[in-house]
Design a protein around this nucleic acid. Structure first.
Lengths: 338, 338
DNA sequence: GTGAAAGCGCTAACAG
DNA sequence: CTGTTAGCGCTTTCAC
């Protein structure tokens, strides 16, 4: 098509399209250029991929796209892809490990050159298998149990410990840990950090752990846990640490239902730094994870792996630092209103 | 590969892979089947696309993926795609019309079979051009000025009017409209609906319109607007209607800074039903848009268009009904705490 | 029922 | 500097 009009071979056109201008005269280049622009010509990606074995696709599986946490992570990944001329394909696992597996398969079918996995946490074996088969993978945010593959995550243990210490030292006498089942590493780490950090302030921190059901926004369940906590710890200055943003929202909601005030009745702190947290009460103290950076660095790492095929793979582990944003919710004295 | 092992031609294998079992004996079918399973064989999508002209890709551009509103819309689109065996490719325009254009181009380059556009609102001409060139497009959430192409959206005018009426009738004497520049249709519609509905309750509703800058979370700007509103309307029961969730968050934040109480000092209502809105104060009254459905129906419509090529294109316009969720923020008397 | 052959649109090796 | 040739992995005619 182009080649005919320009009276050159398609090889030359191909060269032009790939920017190999050294291999042709200026005149040829200009001639092709004008025709390409004239026709607004778009090379066919499928054909290109077929021949070159490079699709320019990167896949990403998301444990739950509805989680507000996900969007900023996606943005980081997406930006890193764009900058390197990769096109991102996203698959939403909807919190289902089965769907996650299917998603990964489907991405591989599409010949993605690498996969960014924000995992449900229950496909470790399968991911390992794929990695060993040579599928390029990077794990973001939620590490796998064994670090056999590149991973970018945040410092759950340190950040959690720091927050617990700060809140105890602010004068609160009990901190409860509101969490969900420990089916992924960050939760396990945060749980552990909570117990470790707490034991120097209270006798039985494990009694202060409340585990809510996963994937359910059940106000009642939280109301019950809250009641239990208040009852068993009467006469003390209470606080709650939430394992993630979903739990935090539920806790705040349950407190509203019970007419409990933050922080007068119970202080609240924890993950994540969602945009509403500085709008509730006098602001909730939160741990802000560098999610954009996690996504961006993760994808960058993956792209490096794709570009530089190395013989001996040594998995990289990058842990990014979270920031504590201390706000009104963890002060003993409530900030005067007005 | 497969064909060798099964001692049949690749034609037959191809037939098998495409489920054309009528064209082969049971024995052949079984033989191929077992080999395919053995080798865990995955057909190459690029090659398939090249020949068949069907990539099985659907593209989607998002005006701003960080907007919490986007994720649920994406989910709807994604689900509809999955169900029809399309793979979704997402591109984030980051609120930039220029990037949006590039994204669309890039998707077309990838030979997507159709594009779902959640537009920044400033590429109408270009979208029209593409549509006329035969690119399959569906517009979701934010309609274009002229409805020349399939569109799925919500009933902005009706919902806004309803909310305004309800709040005035609840006894509030002024409702301010906090918005952003009218660079997309829903905002224009909501603005219009606000003015229309308000004029039977106040003299100059246009004086109650406050336009914040776009894309900026500038607490100060909102604080200033808020002060202005309070000052100019002293002695009245005040309310605010927000054009979207971003504005709502900013308004609530600014009220916090000023120490203003919802709804005692000012009632707040508007778009959108973000998960935190029932956790602030006694809950904020909101308009809940059926975003998932908009995404799902939009993609479904697009897929129908892809599957049934028709001669004369008559654009469809689907308007879905939003739900008003009335909560504590618009009650004259504050619900007693505790 | 099955296969041979052609070709989708492109890139890469080799030749000139 | 440029073109010829082969072929990526699949589908699709057409022939047997």
């Amino acid at each position: 098509m182009i080649s005919e009009k320009a009276k050159v071979s398609k090889t030359t056109v191909s060269r032009f399209l790939n920017g190999k201008y050294d291999f042709m005269s200026d005149k040829t280049r200009e001639r092709i250029q004008s025709i390409v622009e004239d026709l607004d010509y778009r090379p066919n990606h499928a054909a290109r991929s077929l021949k070159s074995k490079k699709t320019g696709f990167i896949g990403m599986t998301i444990s739950d796209i509805e989680n507000p946490f996900s969007s900023i992570l996606i943005k980081g990944v997406s930006d890193a892809c764009m900058r390197n001329e990769f096109q991102l394909i996203i698959a939403n696992a909807d919190n289902s490990p089965i769907k996650e597996r299917r998603d990964i398969d489907s991405l591989i079918d599409r010949q993605v050159e690498g996969i960014v996995i924000y995992t449900t946490g229950e496909n470790n074996e399968y991911i390992k298998e794929l990695h060993e088969q040579g599928v390029k993978i990077v794990i973001v945010d939620r590490p796998l149990e064994k670090l056999f593959v590149d991973t970018v995550t945040t410092d759950s243990e340190e950040a959690t410990a720091k927050m617990i210490h700060q809140v105890y030292q602010a004068g609160f006498e009990r901190i409860a840990f509101f969490t969900q089942p420990s089916n992924n590493i960050p939760r396990i780490l945060r749980h552990k950090a909570f117990l470790d950090a707490s034991k120097q302030y209270v006798e039985h921190p494990e009694k202060l752990v409340y585990i809510a059901k996963e994937h359910v926004n059940n106000a009642e369940e939280y109301v019950d846990m809250l009641k239990d906590y208040v009852e068993k710890n009467k006469g003390h200055k209470l606080a709650i640490f939430t394992v993630n943003g979903v739990v935090m929202l539920n806790v705040v909601q349950a407190m509203n239902i019970l007419g409990l005030n933050i922080p007068k009745d119970i202080a609240v702190c924890g993950y994540d730094d969602l945009n509403w947290t500085n709008v509730v009460g006098n602001g909730i103290s939160v741990i802000a994870q560098p999610s954009y950076e996690v996504g961006f660095q993760g994808a960058k790492l993956l792209i490096e792996r794709i570009k530089n095929e190395e013989k001996d793979y040594v998995p990289k582990y990058i842990e990014m630092t979270s920031e504590l944003k201390m706000r009104g919710s963890t002060q003993l004295e409530q900030r005067p209103v007005k």
